[in-house]
Design a protein around this nucleic acid. Structure first.
Lengths: 92, 92
DNA sequence: GCGATCCAATACCTTTTTCGCATCGTCCCA
DNA sequence: TGGGACGATGCGAAAAAGGTATTGGATCGC
């Protein structure tokens, strides 16, 4: 599980569509297919149901989506917090 | 910033020593040097002070350490939560 | 039914990243 | 001043990620 896989996963989950997600992520569709599949393989769970219209989240996917957003937000908070010169508690 | 970089960082911070950290992580020392440096480069901050005895966390590093542990714990919780068969709320 | 269309999946190759081994430079101490 | 213990660096190999082209399959319009 990598952070980019989680980013990919979140966008695919939001778009319910690999090609649109790929466009949003500025990558091509095949890597997305592979990374999503790699995620499913590693977690030993299907995250999406493949339909002729696109990808629909399965219940396990919904659960991962919450986790993934939390993790990515935490990463973003860390980045913000470390931004040079920013004191620990600017209000004090 | 990648999850493995954060794992590396946490262990180096705990050991205050690249070679010992490398042993714990089952990698060799050079990749550790490089990944830590890559992290510092990306965050545009020094995380460790290099001493003849090893590596000592700088204040920014201490801050990142808290974030890193939180993120890695969140990842671990996600993994646990997705483990097959585990219902959402086993108590109900 | 049948071709066109729109999906995701696969094959194949290229590029990027990561890793390990060997070695270096530096500092400290006996 | 020589040896030992650090982290840093050079370099070639291995692994991971990405891109283009293509395939397979389901649906829709005619």
């Amino acid at each position: 599980m990598s952070l980019s896989q989680l980013e990919y996963f979140v966008v695919v989950a939001e778009e319910e569509h690999l090609s649109r997600a790929a466009k949003r992520l500025h990558v091509s569709q095949p890597p997305l297919t592979r990374q999503i599949r790699a995620l499913e393989d590693e977690l030993e769970t299907k995250l999406f149901e493949r339909t002729p219209r696109g990808m629909r989240l399965l219940p396990t996917g919904v659960r991962l989506l919450e986790h993934a957003r939390g993790i990515l937000n935490a990463v973003e908070r860390a980045r913000m917090d470390l931004r040079v010169g920013l004191p620990r508690d600017p209000a004090r």
